[in-house]
Computed example of a mutant assay.
Amino acid sequence: MFEKLDRTVALVTGASSGIGRASALRLAKAGASVGLVARRAGRLEALATEIREAGGAALAIAADITSAQEAAGVVARTVSELGGLDTLVNAAGLMLNGPSIESPLDEWDRMVAINLCGLMYVTKAALPHLVEAAAGSPRRVADVVNISSVAGRFAASQVAIYSATKFAVTAATEAWRQEFAKRSVRFSVIEPGATATELFEQKAGQWEGFTSMFGEVEQMHPEDIAEAVAFIVTNPRRVAINEIVVRPTDQA
């Protein structure tokens, strides 16, 4: 028996595209009011309008979560304007892979900043509100869902720093899961395989590397991962889904 998310509030980072956008739409469909966070304000406003026109509630917040101050502000606005915080989906991500000698150090720094630091900053700010929601809401549970990657389970050539950030996300999620289990805040990590998002458009040449690695694999859609997010957070309080690895059928 899966539960509706009526009268709950979700915050989704990376909501302007890909898995973040799809997750926001899916959680809104389940009944949650959704805070939408990314840097591209125009896309966020369009998504908020789409959710509202479908009968949901949404708040668009343009911010750079690699700033701890802005990340805290995102959480504060969500709580203030939507009335609380029950679910956090950390979906913001950056992938800038390539040969390590040629790759600029700035690209490595940027991946660490968004994939790891941004996730940490938002989670840190959200934790008191999630604990409060778990203690006082009718569902008696709150959720954090972190989007990692199969690259956070298996390292590959020319993917060193991206993999490092995703290994860290998976490890941090498990540590937080243990820390907050007795306080009814569920921590879950989703590790997708090849998914058709804008990640491969973030740096020239990445698509060619992808095709040489995965050939003619039929990629998953962002909506496929959003279904995994919804599966996690709509389970009743007694059920905690700790980790989901999901790959395309054709991906070895």
Rank of each mutant, 00 (worst) to 15 (best):
T234E: 05
V159E: 09
T78H: 01
A72W: 15
L96V: 06
T165D: 09
A72H: 09
E45T: 14
I225P: 12
S80H: 03
T211S: 14
V246L: 08
P192D: 09
L116M: 08
V74Y: 10
T165I: 06
T123W: 03
I232S: 02
V75Y: 03
S100T: 15
I161Y: 04
S188T: 07
V229M: 04
P192E: 04
N97R: 01
E132I: 11
P192K: 00
G31W: 06
Q219T: 14
G20A: 13
N242A: 14
D64S: 05
F210E: 10
G209C: 08
G152S: 13
R39N: 13
D109A: 12
A160H: 04
S100P: 07
L88A: 06
L199N: 15
I114F: 02
E102T: 11
T66C: 07
Y162N: 05
E243C: 13
V189T: 15
E208I: 06
E198Q: 14
A72V: 14
A68R: 09
V185H: 00
V141L: 09
S157Q: 11
G215L: 03
G193F: 08
V150M: 13
T234Q: 07
Q202E: 11
I51W: 00
N235A: 13
A134Q: 08
T170Y: 13
H221G: 12
R153S: 13
D106W: 07
V12F: 05
A58C: 04
A171K: 07
S33A: 11
E227Q: 12
R140W: 08
V144W: 04
A22D: 03
A62Q: 09
P192N: 03
L96K: 09
S67H: 11
A58D: 02
A28E: 00
I241K: 00
H129M: 12
T211V: 14
S17D: 08
S149N: 10
L116A: 11
V112F: 11
P248Y: 02
H129L: 12
V169L: 03
G20C: 11
I147R: 07
A76G: 07
T123R: 03
P104K: 06
L82I: 15
V245Y: 05
L119V: 05
T49K: 14
T49C: 08
M111G: 13
V233R: 00
V34A: 00
T234L: 09
L96W: 05
I244F: 05
E218L: 03
V12L: 07
Q251T: 01
A72Q: 13
A196C: 05
G93A: 11
A240H: 07
A155E: 06
F200R: 06
V122D: 08
L11R: 03
F180H: 10
A252N: 08
G152I: 06
G83A: 10
K4L: 04
V150N: 15
G14F: 01
G42P: 06
H129A: 07
E102Y: 01
E198W: 09
K203D: 01
L116N: 00
S148T: 08
E243L: 12
L36P: 12
L82F: 13
V131Q: 14
V79Q: 00
Q206S: 14
N242V: 14
W207A: 15
T66G: 03
A54C: 08
N115P: 11
L44D: 01
V169E: 01
V144F: 02
V229R: 06
G73H: 07
R26A: 09
G205T: 01
V37K: 05
S17N: 10
A15V: 13
T123Y: 04
M120A: 15
T13A: 13
K29W: 12
T123H: 02
F214A: 11
E191Y: 02
G42E: 11
